[in-house]
Amino acid sequence: MAGRLEGEIAVVTGSDSGIRHATAVAFAREGADDVAVTIHNDVEGAERTANEVREHGRRAALAPLDQRDPARVGELFRRVTEELGTTTILVNDAGIDSTGRHAGKNRQGTIINVTSVHQEVPRAGAAGYCAAKGGLRNLTRCLSLELAESNITVKNIAPGMVLTPFNQPAIDDPEILKEQVASIPQKRAAEPEEITRVAVFLASREADYIHGTTVYVDGGLIQNMGQGA
């Protein structure tokens, strides 16, 4: 189905590369009227995303954002409101509370947090990453209780291994890739578009009754963690 997001105004944080880049472009392709692209460090990447959004005939706003600073978060939403209108979709990939609460001031919409299978499965050497993703998962659950009566749905996407710059060594070296996908039942990593198709669905009206839960997009990885013990 095309045009599932017509009339929506989306903010996609960290959309200068990887999954969030693909998500911003997919939202534009699916008819979202406007997409706000946030910049942290990669200005060139954010500009590329914004240009691809515009190629689909949609408006794109570029906005700097450091999600560790609540004042910057507030400024982002004020700017988006002034330039584009009221945010109806937020795709958030940071483990802090403030972004969700600013978006939660709207009276209707969707918040999609992007976590990881590592919200459930710890990984040696990645304590900070796993803790942040686990915290974001619980933020989703808490916000789902707080925002339900305001007609704002909140949900998680938890990807497994995805072929983005985050996994550049595996992209560059077939042997590393083969080793890393060995524990995935489907024996492959995901392409970014396989995550964004889920994001489009969750942002659409078709998913209005999906609330407070996580959708795993991982090739079965989380189901296989106990094998061989």
Rank of each mutant, 00 (worst) to 15 (best):
E206M: 07
A148Y: 09
G74V: 12
V198W: 00
E120K: 07
R137M: 10
H56T: 01
Q168G: 05
E206Q: 12
R205D: 15
G7M: 02
G3I: 04
D16T: 12
R205I: 00
S98G: 01
N106A: 14
P159E: 05
E8K: 15
Q180K: 14
P165T: 05
P165F: 03
G31P: 06
E83I: 06
A2D: 10
R48F: 03
D33K: 15
H40Q: 12
I19G: 02
G220F: 14
V91K: 07
A61F: 13
T13W: 01
N92S: 07
Q180R: 13
N151Y: 11
N41D: 11
A50W: 04
G160P: 08
D66N: 15
V198Y: 02
V53P: 07
E82K: 15
P122T: 03
D42V: 01
V43K: 11
A103H: 12
M161S: 05
R59I: 04
V35Q: 12
D218N: 06
I96R: 14
V198F: 00
N167K: 03
N151F: 15
A126H: 10
E206F: 03
D69Y: 06
V200N: 07
G219A: 01
V11R: 09
A26L: 06
G100M: 11
L76F: 08
T115H: 00
V12Y: 10
I195L: 11
Q67K: 01
I89E: 09
A2E: 14
H211R: 02
I152A: 06
V91N: 06
T23D: 09
T164M: 07
A182D: 13
R54L: 03
N113F: 05
T49R: 08
S116P: 03
A126F: 10
L177K: 10
R79W: 10
E193K: 09
M225Q: 15
G104H: 06
E191I: 00
V121K: 05
Y209P: 00
K187V: 02
R141F: 10
G85A: 10
E52M: 12
V43S: 02
D34A: 15
G45Y: 09
G95T: 06
L65P: 10
Q119V: 03
G109P: 10
G226Y: 14
G3W: 09
